[in-house]
Simulated assay, not measured.
Amino acid sequence: MLFKLLLTQANSPLGSALHHDLERESVNLLLPQAEDVDWRHAESVSAYIQQKCPELVINNYAWDTLDTRDGQDAYLAAATHLAAACADADIPLIHLSGYQVFSGNSKSTHSEKDNVDPVTAQGKTLVAAEQAIARLCPRHICLRLGWVIGAYGDNLLTRLLGGYLGGQAVQANRRLRGAPTTLADVARVLVGLYKQISCGSDNWGIMHYCSGDACTQEEFAEQLLQLLIQQQLLTAEPSLTIIDDENTDEPASAILTCRVIRDCFGVQARSWRPSLLPLVKQWLHNRGE
């Protein structure tokens, strides 16, 4: 019998990447629609879990919309209700979180043991969801991610591409540091976790993942610009302005140590650089160019 896995949101950039990878696995994949379950309401979530009886839940619901108040409310509600329902049914839960749980201090790398101290509403929502899950659901993984980039959605790569190829002024901050991680790489890691959990792995708690290739926002913007120039893709004179101010809207560093996920699941970090040109080509293809 196929392993039954529930993915809470497949119609988002990360959900689509994960759905694509999971379709190639021997898994009974549950992809609920809006009419099937309301993740904001405890009774609806509990009824759906009891009816479908998944063996593992991967929760990415509203993770892509945390920059809005509605997205934050939906994210926290879904995480809380899922944690309770999974605990009642003894179902493991993988929940997506992010580096925004940390403060804007000068620390260059954040480990799983560091104290959280969010500086934004987004970060506070992430922390509240993690705390609810830890309180309610013993068998859980809260997977914090760093900068996630891809050819879809709103992320650092798509914003820079839109500016460069749209003839707009582009800004990059030399004080912000991260380790860009592609959507496909995140999906690879999640599939790896599912496979080992389905085989009996019993490792739970807070875990980190980001690519093994750190850079500043300035360095990423400049490498992307050089790539566009080399590929003769620019249609207008680029305008890149470097900012040297502290950004209070997010932590100065999105670089995460990934020791726990490596030790527990053998996950090895990959570089984003070989994926940059394919991502640019995919972004252009999406726009019909």
Rank of each mutant, 00 (worst) to 15 (best):
F3C: 10
K4D: 02
L5R: 03
L6H: 01
L7Y: 04
Q9W: 02
L18W: 02
N28V: 11
N28A: 15
L31E: 09
P32C: 07
D38G: 10
D38Q: 11
W39M: 08
R40D: 13
H41M: 15
E43N: 13
E43S: 15
S44Q: 00
Y48F: 15
Y48T: 12
L56E: 01
L56K: 06
N59M: 07
N59Q: 02
N59S: 15
D70C: 10
G71P: 02
Q72P: 03
D73C: 13
A74W: 11
A74L: 13
T80L: 01
L82N: 00
A83V: 07
A83T: 03
A84V: 09
A85Q: 01
C86W: 06
C86M: 08
A87C: 11
I91W: 00
L93M: 05
L96S: 07
S97M: 00
G98P: 04
Q100G: 09
Q100D: 12
F102A: 04
G104P: 03
N105C: 11
S106F: 09
S108W: 08
T109R: 14
H110G: 03
E112M: 05
D114L: 07
V116M: 09
D117V: 07
V119G: 14
V119Y: 02
G123W: 07
L126R: 04
L126F: 10
A128L: 09
A128K: 07
A129C: 06
A134S: 09
L136M: 05
R144V: 07
R144T: 04
R144A: 08
L145G: 03
A151L: 06
A151R: 07
Y152V: 13
Y152C: 12
Y152N: 14
G153Q: 06
G153T: 03
N155E: 05
L156W: 08
L157Q: 05
T158N: 01
R159T: 10
G162D: 14
G163W: 00
Y164C: 01
Y164T: 07
L165P: 08
G167A: 09
Q171A: 10
A172I: 04
R177N: 12
G178Q: 05
G178P: 04
T181F: 08
T181C: 11
V186T: 06
R188K: 10
L190A: 06
V191N: 07
Q196R: 15
I197R: 00
G200A: 05
N203Y: 12
I206Y: 11
H208Y: 06
C210S: 14
S211T: 00
D213A: 14
E219N: 11
L224G: 01
L228G: 01
Q231H: 15
Q231Y: 12
L233W: 01
E237N: 10
S239K: 13
L240H: 11
L240T: 06
T241N: 06
T241P: 00
D244F: 03
D244N: 15
D245F: 14
N247V: 13
T248E: 12
A252T: 03
A254Q: 08
L256K: 05
L256N: 01
I261H: 06
D263Y: 11
F265Q: 01
F265E: 05
G266A: 02
Q268I: 12
A269C: 14
A269F: 08
R270V: 14
S271A: 15
W272Y: 15
P274L: 06
L276R: 01
W283S: 03
W283P: 04
H285W: 14
N286D: 08
R287I: 03
